[in-house]
Amino acid sequence: MKLVGFGNFVFALSVLLGCPVSVSAEPGAYVGDATCYACHADTKAPYAKTIHARVLTPEAGRSEKMKLGCEACHGPGRAHVEAGGGKGTGMLAFRADDPENIAVENANCLSCHSGGARTHWKGSAHDSGDLACTGCHVVMENRSLRGQLREENEIETCTGCHLMQRAKTKRDAHMPVREGRLQCSSCHNTHGSVSESLLTHTSVNENCYSCHAEKRGPFLWEHAPVNENCLNCHTAHGSTRQKMLRLEPPRLCQQCHVESLHPTEARQPSNKFVIGGACNSCHSAIHGSNHPSGFAFTR
């Protein structure tokens, strides 16, 4: 009974909303896949293995546009065929080297792939930087297991431009990115977000807490800079310092603490305030404490 109710709800919603993704060109402008493959035969075999080849067919297509096959993405081919092929015949070629065409081509991709993770694409860093969808994705063949990526995986794809981030994954303290257990998209939404650095969550800390929830609190005794930004003390992509810290303690802590209780001096390198856990040897609950006597983060 509940399922029937749910089905009715979905049906009512769909009637109310109608179906998006329309076809604007004249029906006679389309030539069909067979005509395309007559000249572009070499693309057929690798393309046949892709998800697009499985979805953009008259049988499987869920909209008029999706039933058009090649022309769903490249546009109507009649003029191209009648001109004997070649450039400048009105078809979208998805070549990433023409900045003036990028917006048009991206809009074509977004006509099916809008919403969801791409809600904030418009005006995002990659959109503003004239990055084409085809700069990162390849539709005509499978180079990656998922996401139709240009390279074998996300890391190779993203670090094609973000070389420094690739270098940082090699550092002593790092996330399991180079081991392939975290992806760039574990933290970033490359298609746009409401946060700095295209983070998937609404702030740096929200991002970190999704896996490090033990540091979220709220605690009886809060360490205010922790609350505001994990990056006050840590780096995200890798560090030469332990625990992905920006600097070794005690100098890291001394950036904000020049105390009288601990005379703030450089200390001998063998001193207990420097080796091992350093400041954290006593202040081990540095992310916040819920102990009644833990105001100095020692309990």
Partner: peptide
């Protein structure tokens, strides 16, 4: 004796 990270919940 020290308190460990307490159970917590977040809803958004």
């Amino acid at each position: 004796r020290m308190a460990t990270a307490p159970d917590n919940a977040s809803h958004a």
